[in-house]
C-alpha cells in the first residue's frame, strides 16, 4: 500500500506545532496502524531525522496507552478498537491519513502525538479506597452480588482509561471515563461504604482538572474502544446529585 501520512509534529509544549507529510511506500494491509508508524520511524531514523513520537505499550488493545486521532476519529475508523488494533486494511491504497494528538486543555501536549493524561490518574486518586479486608481470601459467598450488578460493574470496569472519550467530546469532557470508574466500584457491595465521598471527590477533581461539561452527544460512546455506554454517565449523575444533596457526607477521601 502507498499512503500519504500527515502527522502533527511539535518539539515540545512551548514550541509551535505543524503538520508534516510523509510518503509511506511499503505498508502492508496486515500491519497495525502503529506498525505502519514504526516502519515510517525506522526510515526517518535511517535518514537521520527525528522519529515521530507516539504512545504505545501492550499493542493488544488493553493498556489504553495508544492515543491518536486518525482522520478525525479517536483510535481511527473502526469501532471498539484502539489505535494498536486498527489495521491498515481499514484504509485504501493512496489514502491521505491525518494523524493528530488527543486535543484537550486537560491533556497538555508533551511531544508530537504524545499527551500527558495524568489528569485521569489524579481523578482516580480522588476516588479514594474501598474497604476490603486484605490478606486471607474471603469466603466466596459471604458477600452476595446480584448477577445484574456484577455484569454492569464488569462492563464499567472494561474502561482502559485511554482518554478517547475526552478526545472525541466536543467539550473535552471526561464524563464517560469518570462514570465508568465511579460505577465499577459504586455498583458493588465492596465499594458501597465509600460510595458518596468517592463520587463527590472524583467529580470535583474532574471539574478542577479542566475537563468540560457533558453535552450528551454520544461521541464518547462511539469512539470508546470498550464500547462503554453513556448510560453510565447518567448513573454517575444520579450518584453525584444524590450524594451532593446530602450536603454533609462523612468518609475517607483519597
Amino acid at each position: 500500500m502507498k499512503l500519504t501520512v500527515r502527522v502533527w509534529r511539535q518539539k515540545n509544549a512551548r514550541r509551535e506545532g505543524r503538520f508534516a507529510e510523509y510518503e509511506v511506500q511499503d505498508a502492508s494491509p496486515d500491519m497495525s496502524f502503529l506498525e505502519m508508524l514504526d516502519v515510517l520511524n525506522e526510515r526517518l531514523i535511517r535518514q537521520g531525522e527525528e522519529p515521530i513520537h507516539f504512545d504505545s505499550d501492550c499493542r493488544e488493545g488493553i493498556c489504553g496507552m495508544c492515543s491518536c486521532v486518525i482522520n478525525g476519529e479517536a483510535h481511527g475508523p473502526e469501532s471498539q478498537v484502539t489505535t494498536c488494533q486498527t489495521y491498515m486494511r481499514s484504509f485504501k491504497d493512496g489514502d491521505v491519513i491525518t494523524v493528530e494528538p488527543f486535543r484537550a486543555m486537560a491533556f497538555p501536549l508533551i511531544k508530537d502525538l504524545v499527551v500527558d493524561r495524568s489528569a485521569l490518574d489524579r481523578i482516580i486518586q480522588a476516588g479514594g479506597f474501598i474497604s476490603v479486608t486484605t490478606g486471607s481470601a474471603p469466603e466466596a459467598n459471604s458477600i452476595p452480588v446480584s448477577k445484574y450488578h456484577s455484569d454492569l460493574a464488569m462492563d464499567a470496569a472494561a474502561c482502559i482509561g485511554c482518554g478517547a472519550c475526552v478526545a472525541a467530546c466536543k467539550n473535552a469532557s471526561a464524563n464517560l471515563f469518570v462514570a465508568a470508574k465511579v460505577a465499577h466500584l459504586n455498583l458493588l457491595p465492596q465499594g458501597g461504604p465509600e460510595k458518596d465521598p468517592r463520587v463527590l471527590g472524583m467529580v470535583e477533581a474532574m471539574t478542577s482538572e479542566g475537563f468540560g461539561a457533558c453535552s450528551v452527544t454520544g461521541s464518547c460512546e462511539a469512539v470508546c474502544p470498550k464500547g462503554i455506554p453513556t448510560s453510565f454517565i447518567s448513573r454517575m449523575n444520579h450518584n453525584f446529585l444524590t450524594a451532593a444533596l446530602k450536603l454533609r457526607v462523612h468518609g475517607p477521601r483519597g
Partner: peptide, 17 residues
Amino acid sequence: NRRKRGHSYEVKKLVGA
C-alpha cells in the same frame, strides 16, 4: 466548553453525535 478543547482538530468529524 469551547475553551476546554484548547487546540482544535484539523480534521473535524461528527462521530456518533
